[in-house]
Design a protein around this nucleic acid. Structure first.
Lengths: 148, 148
DNA sequence: CCATGCTCATTAGCTAAGCTAAGGACCGTG
DNA sequence: CACGGTCCTTAGCTTAGCTAATGAGCATGG
């Protein structure tokens, strides 16, 4: 029992390091392939959450995206500058605002949903179906871990 | 054939989005769990590469880490401030320097190799062996994709 | 030996995004 | 009404990503 736990622990630690390294390299590579002017990871992720949820308060969006509210204020500020997100007063609470994707934001979201020229999608296309399946499963596991 | 390719393309695009979302959430979560004062992802990754390679020029390290040289200059500067990395003149080229981990840097690396209290390692320990295997395989695939 | 083109690392300047602390407006409750 | 709590934003700081520029140094050809 002690030996089994030690083995699992060693495996988990090695995996933690391996995963961290892989993610940082992968993320950098994807970022480098992003055309200048396109939305950043954080912006696109926020827009996606907004689109899927319909409308959210900044607090809700920050929680969903796993950042603190001031960070989300900044990200949303950028999206708003680009006309992709709009704010309206909250119906019942004067402290709050409601964020929602604009028509243009929805168009950008839809475009990203089917970005045929995107470097990452092209690279993933070159993997075997098994490898893609592995990545899909890993993504699901990571989302679960991130939710805590 | 056309249908198969369309299916693969759709799958790859969906996977690209899924993977991006998972990675950004996961990365943020791991970052939030990092004790104040610990090395950042980028710093730890650079230190790891240095440790494993023994010694590198800034250019080599930047290439290995997939960033531009000025970025690596900054990251290394931080590591140097903390006494984890040292510079020596290049033996034959006056333009270059050699970077290597210090004794302290090696100790930090070794500590991170077996960080038993690290949040991520603890979380990974709670997964099934199959799930860990999936993540390990995914990490390998991501490294390969990142190398291009 | 000299001129030239190239390479190296760094600095400068900018952007983005992460955090905590603080401030002001607003809400809910006793 | 007073108070405690919540909301979003601003302020201030850090880290890290990029491109452009700079000055030192190297390699090569004449």
């Amino acid at each position: 029992m002690e030996r089994v736990m030690t083995t699992e622990r060693t495996t988990a630690e090695t995996l933690a390091k391996t995963l961290r390294d892989a993610i940082i390299r992968f993320s950098r590579r994807v970022r480098q392939a992003r055309p200048v002017g396109d939305l950043t990871f954080s912006q696109l992720s926020a827009l996606t959450s907004l689109q899927l949820a319909g409308a959210l308060t900044p607090r809700e969006l920050a929680d969903m995206e796993r950042v603190q509210p001031p960070t989300m204020t900044k990200i949303v500020g950028k999206l708003e500058e680009r006309g992709l997100v709009a704010r309206t007063p909250h119906p019942t609470d004067g402290r709050q605002v409601i964020l929602a994707a604009t028509d243009e934001g929805r168009a950008v979201y839809a475009f990203n949903e089917r970005a045929r020229n995107e470097w990452l999608a092209v690279e993933l296309e070159r993997l075997t179906p098994e490898e893609r399946e592995t990545l899909a499963r890993a993504a699901e596991i990571m989302q679960r871990v991130a939710r805590g």
